[in-house]
Computed example of a mutant assay.
Amino acid sequence: MILAEVVRSGFAESVHHGSVVVLDTAGQVVAEAGDVTGPTFPRSSNKPLQTVGMLRAGLRTAEPADLALISGSHFGEPFHVARVRQILETAGLDESALRCPASLPLSEDERDIVLRDGRGAERILMNCSGKHAGMLATCVANGWPLDDYRDVKHPLQVTLAATVSELVGEPIAATGIDGCGAPVLGFSLTALARGFQRLVQAPPQSFERLVADTMRADPQLVAGTGEDDTRLMQGVPGLLAKGGAEGVVAVAVEGAGAVALKIEDGAMRARMPVLVSALRRLGVDAPVLEELATVPILGGGVRVGEVRTAW
C-alpha cells in the first residue's frame, strides 16, 4: 500500500509503501492500510512494553524519570549519558557492565563534540544504553547473571517476552536480535497499537501507567532535543510516542485512540506524514502536527519538494 510520496519540483519522484492501523478508544480498528495483522519487528517501539516487564520483575529507579530513558532511544546528549550512569551506579555497576555495542551519539552536534575531544564510540553513548542499564538493574534486583542478560533464554528476557505478549494480546510470532544485541519481539501492528493504548488507559498506580506518565512527563529523555518523539509528546497533550528503526512508530492518545505504522522500505522520513494523517482520523490536532505533516526535500540548500502522505 502506498502511504507516502516524494514530490520534487512538482513531480512525484518516488513512493513509500507500508502498513498502518488506527484504533479508537475501545481498541477497534477504524482505519487501516497494508498488512496490519501479520507479524513485524517493532524494533525500539518495544521498549516501553519491556520497561513494564522490568518493573514487574522488581526494577526500581532512583527517580521516576529514569524510566523514560530506559524506555527511550536517547540521542547521546550529556543529560542522557549522566542518567544512564546514575541508573548503573544505583545498581552498584558502571558502564563496563553494558553489553550494547559501542556507538557515537545519534545527535550530530554531540557526535561532533565527542570527535573534537579526541574520543570515539562508547557503549554508554549508544542509543539503547538506557534500556540496557535498566535490564542490568533488573538482573541485580533478582540476583540474575549479568554477563548473558541479552540471551533470549536468560530469565530476564523470558520475563520480558511474557509481559510484552500479555500487553499486546498476541503470542510472540518471532524473536530476533536487535541492533543493540538484545532480543527483539515480533507481533502485528494492531497488537502494537493495542499495547500502547493499554499503557495510557491503565489505572494511575499501575506499572503500565507509570511508564506512560514518565515518558510523557520527560519526553526529551525518550529521544532528544527537537526529535520527533520528543516534539510529539511536548506538542500534543496526553500523547505517548515511541519510534523504532526501519520506519516504525507507535502512538497512543488518551481519549482518542492509538496508531502503529511500518514503512516497508525502512525509510524514517515517511513516518511522520503518515502518522499525522492517522492522528487526524482520530480527531487529534495540534500545531506540531502541521509542522510534521511534510518533510522538506532540499536542492542546493533550498526547499524544492517534500515527503507527504499519500494515504
Rank of each mutant, 00 (worst) to 15 (best):
A162L: 06
T214S: 15
E170N: 10
I113M: 03
C128E: 09
C128N: 05
E89A: 15
A162Y: 01
D112C: 08
M135E: 12
L93I: 04
S103F: 08
F207R: 13
P101Q: 02
L167D: 07
V81C: 02
M135Y: 10
A212T: 11
S165H: 07
G179T: 10
T159W: 05
R123H: 00
G176N: 10
P101S: 04
V200K: 04
P101R: 00
R209S: 10
H132I: 14
L98E: 06
A97M: 02
V140C: 04
A91P: 08
A133G: 05
L156F: 06
G134V: 01
V81P: 05
L185Q: 15
D151R: 01
L185V: 08
H80W: 06
T138D: 00
V168Q: 06
G134A: 02
A102C: 03
L189N: 10
L88P: 12
A173P: 12
S96R: 14
L98S: 05
Q201T: 15
D109P: 00
F196W: 11
P203I: 06
A191L: 06
A91H: 04
V164H: 08
E89R: 14
L199N: 04
S129Y: 03
G92N: 03
G179F: 10
D148S: 03
G118I: 03
N142H: 07
M215N: 03
L210F: 09
R111G: 01
R194E: 12
S206A: 12
R119S: 12
A162R: 03
S107P: 06
R119Y: 02
R194T: 08
G92E: 05
P101N: 03
S107W: 00
Y149M: 06
W144P: 03
G130I: 14
C139P: 13
G76W: 03
R123K: 15
E110L: 01
R150V: 13
E110Y: 00
E77W: 12
E108D: 12
S96N: 09
E77H: 12
T175E: 03
G169L: 05
T138G: 05
L106Q: 06
T90Y: 11
R111S: 05
S165C: 04
S165A: 15
E95Y: 01
L104F: 02
A193V: 11
C128P: 11
V81I: 15
F196K: 01
V211L: 05
L146V: 02
I177T: 15
A193H: 09
L199R: 13
A121M: 04
R119G: 15
A173G: 11
A121N: 08
C128Y: 12
R209G: 08
D109Q: 08
R150C: 13
S165R: 02
T138K: 09
R194S: 15
E122H: 01
F207V: 13
G130A: 10
G120A: 07
E208L: 08
S103Q: 12
E108F: 01
L156P: 07
E170A: 11
V211Y: 04
P78G: 03
K131S: 04
G134S: 03
V184E: 06
E108L: 12
H74Y: 07
H80E: 02
R150T: 15
K131R: 12
C139K: 00
Q197Y: 02
